[in-house]
Amino acid sequence: MSDRVQTPEGGTPIVGDDPVYLNDPIQDATVRMLLELAAQVWVERERRLTLEALLEKKGIVAHDEIERHTPDTVLAARLKDERARFLEDVFKELRRVPLNQ
């Protein structure tokens, strides 16, 4: 991971790592999480639309099959990993809320 220390020479003082713009850090975290959620929704929608288009094109899977499918153990484990990544993306913002304002 990159060294976070910076050494600018004069100019406009740069703000620290986690500036608070709204009325309190909780509001900032809430907006950040909202943006992350919106990003994740788009990521999922883009993938689903791509997959559905490919499946339909190849005549492999009907939409109903996707709705009824039960994951096997391999897919279930993968979904768990993906869920952890999703939660990290959206809710990592909670770690940035300072203990004291």
Partner: peptide
Amino acid sequence: RWFDARHNGEPYSQD
């Protein structure tokens, strides 16, 4: 310009 300098890592841009 001020925001970009202070909040987007452009300390020298205002000068």
